[in-house]
Amino acid sequence: MSGKFQNPTQDPLLLRIFLSLVAIGFVALFLVLPLLIVFKEALADGLGKAFAAIIEPDALSAVKLSLLAAGIAVPLNTVFGISAAWAVAKHDFSGKTILVTLIDLPFSVSPVVSGLIYVLVFGLQGWFGSYLLDHDIHILFALPGIVLATIFVTFPFVARELIPLMVDQGRDEEEAAISLGASGFSTFCRVTLPNIKWGLLYAVLLCNARALGEFGAVSVVSGHIRGQTNTMPLHVELLYNNYDYVGAFAVAALLALLALLTLVFKTILEWRYADELAAMHRH
């Protein structure tokens, strides 16, 4: 009798095989091949050449600039995200939906538009253009512009992960701590933070990956000055357009490694702290 039984919630074997092959095939074709080609092209002339392209001064300065921009943007957005989540999750006020929607807005804006808006504010024909020129302050085509654009495109990351997580955890524990005489700050550090630490780490990780890799927005505001205002992705573009494929793919491979590292950490976090992260994925 066994063997004949058809589980009504399970697909027939042939369908299972077919759909699995479609899924694996699509992912292999669209996601894995591009990843492979990056490393293949980077190593086309051997490891030495690829390594040389990465430690070459312009490349190193691009690495530094990217790290610096992310190093400013990520902490700022983290503070913002925590603050926004604290306000939204732990308090009642009207207009919450609008606030949350506005926080999400940068995600749906094209990266190029994200850069464009700062050109319109700080550019020569922009709102503050002539003032900045008179006072010799450089925002566009300089570090501040790059940082601003990076902040904008990574703006919602921490907030949108933390808000559902903190809403889910409710307010009881904090209210208990306060009623026992703890200060607001120590309540946050001792009660809230331990509850959200993995979600926070997860969000910061993704925010950082995007900050390091942002291309469109930064491309608009950077001015593409080799060795000065080129971030890593912009440096990749520059090398590629100069037909230095090994160099372009070597730097690209470095970025791809960072992306893979992010995915590994993300996957580990999701496996180990599935319960604590569940609320984030339910939205």
Partner: peptide, 24 residues
């Protein structure tokens, strides 16, 4: 109902070998 598989035993209903039939 045919939603779970029995390990052993048999069911006859309306002179049919009930457990060998798929739920539908």
């Amino acid at each position: 109902g045919g939603l779970e598989e029995a390990d052993s035993g048999s069911v006859r209903f309306a002179d049919l070998n009930w457990l060998s039939m798929p739920a539908r």
